[in-house]
Design a protein around this nucleic acid. Structure first.
Lengths: 340, 340
DNA sequence: ATGTTCATTCGAACCGATTCGACTTCGGCG
DNA sequence: CGCCGAAGTCGAATCGGTTCGAATGAACAT
């Protein structure tokens, strides 16, 4: 079932079949129909490897996701879904490469074996080896997230710094004086995960501007961690009345911890976060949060990548989004303390 | 950066480089080291397309997932994660192919263009075109789920029929007399989605065995649909006291609807389901459910696929799991009706 | 009749790996 | 001393496409 077989059965040469399929040179109407009939009958599709070898491109992109060990958050899932969708629309296939550890076989194999025409990188760190490696190889790529030197690459990103600052201002407006930032895991932050650092920067800045007492806590990406994290925060800081967070996966656990501590949300305690809209709306009570437009970001990332693949020489482009905070059910005026 | 370049720089022929890498023929120690040094220096990896063309295999598998439009459920996400993980361990790459509509370009391209050595199919219907197509092409595949003729393919599956029957028996044991089955979407069921049909069969059978009144409702895969679905059920069947469900994504909505109707769970109303463990545990109250071992199923599916790729002639194998129901916080004795 | 143009089609080279048969060396053995 | 086998290496063929230059033949003008 290769092109030679098609050529034989339609009584033409292999090159004519190729031209009939690609249209890069004229083929007479009759010949084209004869060839097409044979192709339809046998269900022929050109061998992808042979085509990729000759053309020098694979019509495939790689999507580099966090290692499989950690569950994807809802926002991340939104990125993956929209990218897979956009790729399908562009007739591209998507190769999934879990990467995160120090030395990653999958990433290296995909990237330096030229299995793909371009790469979309998720979970980028401020100083990311993979970015350097892709630059060295000269493979087009786009980040969802950015390094410490963002001018030198193309990316789309969420402006966690601004968003967390906005959360803090919102909480300060409501009268809260002691606010905590619940970050993602300590390991991620230590590894130089951008959003952690930027959220912290925004938090510190806004807290200073409003004269608030701010504490920061790291927390793994799951509900159980959220629960113990908030338990500890409440124990250590009894006067705490509000949380700002970028850790959506931990939020159900935070709700639970607050409920168990007898703090009603939003009457006694406020939470504001950054999250996927569906996720925020389906929590109970629904979360006041900046809704990350993951679908749009994913689609834009793919757009940027397609442009870079078409012409690797074009200047880098960036998209930084800071969606407004949707007021839902988890923030309210700070309750005046009984002891005061 | 191809094998010729490596050969030139190490002063040997291309075939010697190839043998040095594969070890399929002896290469002297000195030559091997010289070649390896050049390879390390240039960061050479064999071109995947050229290798695939010659060897006739791509070292890649396809994972066929539901179309991107619908969010993956937690169980599905577990499958994807474990398969990606298992593939990475076997040094295989994973190509993601969203498929579900009638005529699917991505699936056809991946499968008949020989882009992959094997396929794992998710969301299989009782009568599934893709199964037929894969059989026709002769590409090894394993289903997560099975068709109406399960002997003729390899698969792993969750025994929804048994699990839902168990849920019904459990609810009957607690004294419930009117029970509803909340299925997944009507479109899926109409398309012949296996779990829908099998869950329904188990539900009807168990309800008959216990003399219960059973109603079935379809419900899209999201919280909003779960909410309206349960609202409608309560309105139409005021005597309803329990739900069995395979629709995990709708469960938060069901909780909400019950809360809004003033039915406390589990005091006034019981829910038993089939779900991912993390998901069930993080609900509030935690869901009594059969915990789907998605990680194990995914790993086993990959195992079966690797066997079939190694030897397509071996007999088909199957794995049907029916994990026990973990009693958590959503089922309790039926409250004696006040009107009785 | 001859030359010219145009539309089609063909044959061969090429992409970058693997692999087979053949060739050269060298040591061991009769 | 000459033969044999093994080790090590090389050249060429091959996988299945794409693409370039050239060949064919019909239509048309001179």
């Amino acid at each position: 079932m290769n092109i030679g077989e098609i050529a034989r059965r339609s009584g033409v040469s292999r090159s004519t079949v190729s031209y009939a399929l690609s249209g890069k040179r004229p083929v007479s109407e009759g010949t084209r129909r004869r060839i097409q009939a044979v192709i339809d009958e046998l269900g022929y599709q050109p061998n992808a490897a042979a085509r990729a070898l000759k053309e020098g491109r694979t019509r495939t992109i790689a999507l580099v996701i966090p290692p499989a060990s950690q569950r994807l958050t809802d926002v991340q899932l939104g990125f993956v879904a929209s990218i897979v969708d956009a790729a399908a629309r562009a007739d591209l296939d998507v190769l999934l490469s879990p990467s995160g550890g120090e030395h990653d076989r999958s990433f290296e194999r995909v990237v330096s074996g030229r299995r793909v025409d371009g790469v979309i990188l998720m979970e980028i760190r401020l100083d990311d080896d993979r970015v350097a490696r892709l630059g060295q190889i000269g493979l087009p790529f786009v980040g969802i997230g950015r390094t410490a030197r963002p001018e030198s690459m193309s990316w789309v990103d969420i402006d966690y710094e601004t968003l967390i600052a906005r959360c803090v201002h919102h909480l300060a407006d409501l009268g809260h004086r002691q606010v905590a930032l619940v970050d993602r895991s300590a390991e991620l932050a230590a590894a130089g995960y951008g959003p952690s650092h930027r959220a912290q920067a925004g938090f510190t800045r806004a807290a200073a501007e409003r004269g608030l007492t701010g504490v920061r806590a790291c927390c793994a990406d799951d509900a159980a961690a959220g629960l113990t994290c908030v338990e500890r925060l409440l124990a250590a800081h009894p006067g705490l009345t509000a949380i700002a967070t970028i850790n959506e996966a931990a939020i159900p656990g935070m709700y639970r911890a607050l409920a168990e501590a007898g703090r009603k949300v939003p009457a006694d305690f406020s939470i504001a976060g950054v999250s996927a809209r569906h996720w925020a709306e389906n929590l109970h009570p629904p979360l006041t949060a900046a809704d990350v437009p993951a679908d749009e970001l994913g689609a834009r990332a793919m757009e940027l990548l397609l442009q870079r693949i078409a012409d690797p020489g074009i200047p880098h482009r960036h998209l930084l989004v800071a969606p407004p905070i949707s007021l839902r059910g988890t923030t309210g005026p700070a309750r005046v303390r009984e002891s005061s």
